[in-house]
Amino acid sequence: MAKIVAICATTHHPFYYKTSKMSEDEAPPFAKEWIEKVTRYRETLTKAEPDVLVMIGSDHFHQLWLNSMPQFLVGNAPFYDANYYNEEREFGLPQLLLRGDVELANFILEKGLEVGFDLAFSNELRVDHSITCPIFTIRPEADLPIVPIYTNIFAPPLPQPKRFVELGKTIRTIVEEWPSEKRVAIIGTGHLSLELGGPRQFGPHGPDPDFDSKAVDWISNGKIDEALAEVSLESLHAPGNATHGFMDFMLMMGVAQGQVADYADTLDLFHTMEAYFTWYPKGE
């Protein structure tokens, strides 16, 4: 059976790539610490020696649109073009071509359907920065095949937080049942408190530092029940109008099955708090 060798959950800050490429003269004062933290975080994945990456993210109105909006979608294509013109324009993100692992994607799809997750699928998916940011930060070689899984945290009505946790647990179980010798890492990106296009955007910190510190405690200590007791679709409006992206972290807590994180780090940046978590399933 396949082995899950690392579970990584992180924020996806689209400006990291550009910041990391700046010369010392032009880089902002926080760049050095940011790059150091990301470099340390990258090592937590590198040392697990994965063969394939299951990547959880969320399309930002690039390919998925309001005329047919899936709640959870698995990419099952052999390749993924990645990043869009407007991400190059706004964030300086280059376009990429990533390989896909169709066998694992189809296994996740079919087993998911069997156990009660009516997953949508895509044979031609251009992934966006929710998938490529963790490539740039923790696997910049972009050399491993991926299985992208998109969640809808963006276009309400959204699935309930508990479904994100349940989907995470289900993905974990399915990957562990995959008849393969491959070493799989499951990587997901979400948000802590975040405001986009609203009055609290782009402040000196994330819009709700209290929420952030609570959320980091939930994630790093595997407090799934506590998070579920406090978080609802309604409550997530309060920390910032884009904070529903926290549900992707809840999905990753489900993947980690309540385990305490083996690695946890944060960085208080303008606009948002960055956070980095890694779990090694027991026995790794």
Binding site: F61, N86, E90, F154, L196, G197, G198, Q201
Partner: peptide, 8 residues
């Protein structure tokens, strides 16, 4: 209107 669309 979706604030992400407007902002972008």
């Amino acid at each position: 209107a979706h604030p992400f669309l407007t902002l972008t």
